[in-house]
């Protein structure tokens, strides 16, 4: 009956800020980290901006895809493997091709992976097997497929691809506009789509309360399939970004597994509850960049790379413990 504060209830702007306080918080954190980083190194300029942005692209894409799936009440442990698949297909078939063919291949990869993962979503709704189990299994299948397509690291891509994701045809230096736009445009599209369309909202509905969504006449199965399809498309995009960054394809299982786990970490830190239905894509974009930025910051602080890994782990666990504590205190107060 009683709301925590009446001002919050009556003032729409305040309410929106309050409801998105976590998203706001992670963006402020990102801003603070960038500022801090700029004082840590002698020169902070376009080169660093380009570098941070382009290096974050694969994880950010993957995390956006994961966020959409988690919001719809699922979780996809095969996203990393799909990234591998996209990466090796691009590396194997793009090198030396004319621009139209490259574009066609890129679009084909995105559409193909979207369909493939939509099929996985369909299998999940059909079989009644938990998402985590199905995607665990399909993760094996996709990494096997990736290994089959490109048995050892190699291949290449077109300069135009590299320019699109890194700002330079050679992948070194270059303008920060292309990667920055490639970061923000897909993120904004997915974020706006998910909060402002009937289908987008139905993902939240299904993740928040599946039974209620069904009883209200929503198509639960369709929502899940769409979510997985988007996840697949984002993984395809992530694989393309990867090939643009490194200039080659790499089918190693561990890369995929790590990417998956990082995407889950980014999603959770970004304020998307693993139970579904809560959070938004914007927060995840910030945490994706933060996770990538930790590396250069720790290097700039001359922290050993193994310790950097420890710090990253402690940070994730620490933030989540803090979140748990806040939730606990809030629950006790109300």
């Amino acid at each position: 009956m009683m709301m925590p504060s009446m001002t919050m209830r009556n003032n729409p702007t305040l309410r929106i800020l309050f409801r998105n306080s976590w998203t706001l918080g992670v963006w402020l954190l990102l801003g603070a980290l960038v500022l801090w980083y700029s004082t840590l190194i002698p020169v902070f300029g376009p080169f660093q901006i380009t570098s941070i942005t382009k290096n974050s692209l694969p994880l950010v894409y993957l995390a956006i895809g994961q966020a959409i799936i988690v919001i719809a009440g699922g979780i996809d442990l095969s996203l990393g493997a799909l990234l591998l698949l996209s990466n090796v297909i691009a590396a194997r078939f793009m090198a030396g091709q004319p621009l139209p063919a490259v574009v066609l291949i890129a679009l084909g990869i995105i559409a193909g992976l979207a369909l493939l993962n939509a099929l996985v979503g369909f299998i999940i709704t059909l079989s009644g097997v938990p998402d985590i189990v199905v995607t665990l299994a399909t993760g094996y299948i996709w990494s096997g497929l990736a290994l089959w397509i490109l048995p050892s690291p190699g291949g290449g891509t077109a300069p135009e691809m590299r320019w699109l994701f890194t700002g330079s045809p050679s992948g070194v230096g270059g303008s920060y506009w292309p990667p920055l736009l490639m970061l923000l445009i897909p993120a904004a599209l997915v974020a706006i789509w998910s909060r402002n369309t009937q289908v987008g909202l139905s993902l939240y509905a299904v993740g928040s309360h599946k039974t209620a969504a069904q009883l209200a006449g929503l198509n639960v199965r369709q929502a899940k399939i769409v979510a997985y399809g988007i996840g697949g498309a984002m993984a395809g995009l992530a694989g393309l970004a990867m090939v643009a960054l490194t200039g080659t394809g790499d089918p190693r299982f561990a890369i995929g597994a790590n990417a998956t786990l990082n995407s889950v970490a980014a999603v959770v830190l970004g304020g998307v509850a693993l139970t579904g239905g809560v959070g938004n894509v914007f927060g995840v974009v910030a945490t994706g960049v933060i996770l990538i930025m930790l590396n250069p910051i720790l290097i700039a602080m001359r922290v050993d790379s193994n310790n950097a890994q420890v710090i990253q782990g402690v940070l994730i666990a620490g933030v989540m413990m803090f979140g748990g504590l806040v939730a606990f205190l809030r629950e006790r107060r109300s």
Partner: peptide
Amino acid sequence: VGVAIFRVNPLIMTLAMSSILLGLFTA
């Protein structure tokens, strides 16, 4: 302690722990 007392999602807690252990033992 992380999962039971601080109520961290087990997936995240143990994932972070895995990362911590890998770093620690490598060092």
